[in-house]
Nucleic acid binder design. Structure first.
Length: 382
DNA sequence: GCTCCACCGGAATAAAAGGGAA
DNA sequence: TTCCCTTTTATTCCGGTGGAGC
């Protein structure tokens, strides 16, 4: 028998897993009606052939920002089609397109103009982009709504040039999505003044709200009676503790189901959820570390070494150990400073700057934020 | 040969609080 | 006790280099 067919016949608690993927866009988003309406209230201008105001969305991970934005895009596209208007919506994730050049080039490409990744000057690309709005044979003005997801990443990396360019292009409206409230500190005043944005805040989901979300999705994705009574409340409770992260809740539910299949059980048990929690945590860390550049792995290795020796990790001591580990092939302290910041952004470590007076000066105290055994497995193992 | 940009490091500036002067 | 200075490192600013697409 064919091995794929054989595996395909294995029994499962799932009806269709795809509905548990956080990228799946459901037809309705429970407990986000208000936020959708807020966006619609501004974007409706586009249907009157007026460029809508810019919008900024804040909220922690898994609070439905991306889903709501995409939902609004879809709805607007439908409405525009019905009214025969020339409205375009483009979604760009700034972790994939990390500089002004890349974003503008991507926008050109998505709107049908071929632009090379390199070779052109920034000005050429921007001109090409702006020309898209000029000639319009059909008389109707083109209005572009750009969704910039995780814009804080781009601002940190490349500055506010992109926002400057976009706000100074007629008929472009920006919807920026950020995990951090303070991302505007990266925007200089000259740009901030032209970014007259409306702000919408996404609060974390509460446990009961997460239950509603999970129940809706589980109806689509699990077979009937495949879930134990306590499974959804448990997933919701655990995710509520993780700052109301719906993505995490969905992950837990899916992984619990997968564990259940592995054990060839007909019903997902509450115990599997707890197992799933460990599994996800372990995998998350391993994934992050595997994709880390080797220099950063070395920094992490040094931190692990010092943690195991129960030494207090100051930035100076870390640099010493790092140089030792690197054996000549090391980068400067200046670089390590950046690496430490990046590791902190990833949630692997935490830092705390303290000052110890005249004799000792300032230093960073670094703490490992993940399980040492998991980290050891990831760095040494495999 | 041109451009973008990831990666890098030097130099300047900022920060905090113990130490010492008053 | 108060206040300011010193010390040491964090943090920022900025420019250089080289690989890669064109």
């Amino acid at each position: 028998m064919n091995i794929f067919e054989e595996l395909g016949e294995k029994k499962t608690v799932f009806a269709d897993k795809q509905y548990l993927d956080h990228r799946f866009l459901p037809d309705n988003l429970p407990h986000r009606e208000e936020q959708i309406k807020s966006i619609a209230k501004y974007w409706i201008e586009a249907l009157n052939n007026v460029t809508p105001p810019d919008i900024t969305i804040y909220g922690k991970t898994g609070t439905g920002k991306t889903a709501v934005a995409k939902f609004a895009m879809k709805q607007l596209k439908e409405a525009a089609k019905n009214n025969d208007l020339n409205i375009r919506t483009e979604y760009i994730r700034c972790t994939d397109y990390t500089t002004e050049y890349q974003v503008i080039a991507r926008l050109c490409q998505q709107m049908g103009r071929d632009v090379p990744y390199r070779g052109w000057t920034k000005a050429e690309v921007i001109n090409t982009f702006r020309n898209l709005f000029k000639k319009n044979a059909f008389g109707k003005d083109l209005i572009l709504l750009v969704v910039l997801d995780e814009i804080d990443i781009l601002l940190r990396n490349d500055g506010d040039g992109l926002l400057y360019t976009l706000t100074r292009t007629d008929n472009v409206s920006i919807l920026s999505i950020s995990n951090y409230v303070d991302f505007k500190k990266f925007i200089k005043p000259r740009v901030r003044s032209s970014l007259r944005d409306r702000e919408i805040v996404f609060p974390p989901y509460g446990a009961q709200q997460l239950v509603d979300i999970l129940e809706e999705r589980s109806k689509l994705s699990f077979k009937e009676n495949a879930l134990g009574d306590d499974v959804i409340p448990l997933c919701a409770a655990l995710a509520a503790k993780e700052e109301g992260d719906a993505r995490y809740a969905l992950d837990l539910l899916r992984t619990s189901g997968e564990l259940s299949d592995e054990k060839e059980s007909d019903i997902v048990q509450g115990d599997y959820v707890r197992e799933a929690k460990d599994y996800i945590e372990h995998n998350k860390i391993t994934d992050i570390i595997m994709t880390l550049p080797s220099q950063q792995q070395r920094v992490l290795e040094s931190i692990l070494y010092l943690t195991k020796r129960k030494e207090e990790i100051t930035s100076g001591r870390l640099f010493e150990v790092y140089k030792d580990v690197s054996r000549g092939d090391s980068v400067s302290y200046r670089r390590i400073f950046d690496f430490i910041n990046e590791l902190e952004m990833l949630g692997l470590i935490s830092t705390n700057t303290v000052s110890r007076g005249r004799a000792k000066g300032r230093t960073n105290i670094i703490d490992l934020q993940c399980d040492t055994t998991v980290l050891e497995d990831a760095i040494w193992g495999m």
